[in-house]
Computed example of a mutant assay.
Amino acid sequence: MKTVAQLLKLKSQQHHEVHTIGPGQMVLEALKLMAEKNVGALPVVEGGQVVGIVSERDYARKMVLKGRSSVGTPVSAIMSAPVITVDPHQNVEFCMNMMTNSHLRHLPVVENGELLGLLSIGDLVKEAIAEQANLILQLEQYIRGE
């Protein structure tokens, strides 16, 4: 099974860059950035440290349903914190279990306090499917004696 570090290297350059936002920025800015970059979540970074994560789900549940204004509400008011992170040495299976058990869709990758990347559940599912397809191919070749 691949490690998180290997998976981050495989991500295309477009999806490798991690877009972040500060806790004092307004929710509207976060929404604009998510729409512009076509991402579903942004790590919230303050002083170089990941202090939370804000997602479309946070917006729907903590803003829209409560009738709040995205113009005057800071990201810190709706972000999920403390944020669950993973280090680059963990494997895909560990991350999938963590995300499933904690009901997460996005998982920041942090090493020594530095944000290295952001994995989505889609990234992990894609890799798991690829690994299973490779295993099936190997088993078929073994059965055929190749």
Rank of each mutant, 00 (worst) to 15 (best):
6 Q>P: 00
7 L>Y: 04
11 K>Q: 07
14 Q>R: 15
16 H>A: 13
19 H>K: 10
20 T>P: 00
23 P>K: 14
26 M>N: 10
28 L>Y: 12
29 E>H: 13
31 L>E: 08
33 L>I: 09
36 E>H: 14
38 N>I: 00
42 L>I: 07
45 V>I: 11
47 G>V: 07
48 G>I: 03
50 V>N: 04
50 V>T: 11
52 G>R: 09
56 E>M: 00
60 A>E: 01
63 M>P: 01
70 S>E: 08
71 V>T: 02
74 P>I: 02
75 V>E: 07
76 S>N: 04
77 A>D: 10
78 I>N: 02
82 P>Y: 11
84 I>L: 11
85 T>D: 00
86 V>P: 04
88 P>D: 13
90 Q>N: 07
92 V>L: 13
93 E>L: 09
94 F>R: 13
96 M>P: 00
100 T>G: 06
102 S>N: 15
103 H>N: 15
105 R>G: 05
106 H>C: 11
109 V>R: 12
110 V>E: 06
113 G>Y: 01
115 L>D: 01
117 G>V: 04
117 G>C: 03
124 L>K: 05
126 K>H: 14
130 A>L: 14
133 A>S: 13
134 N>T: 11
136 I>C: 02
140 E>A: 08
142 Y>I: 11
142 Y>C: 05
143 I>D: 06
143 I>Y: 14
144 R>S: 14
144 R>V: 06
145 G>T: 12
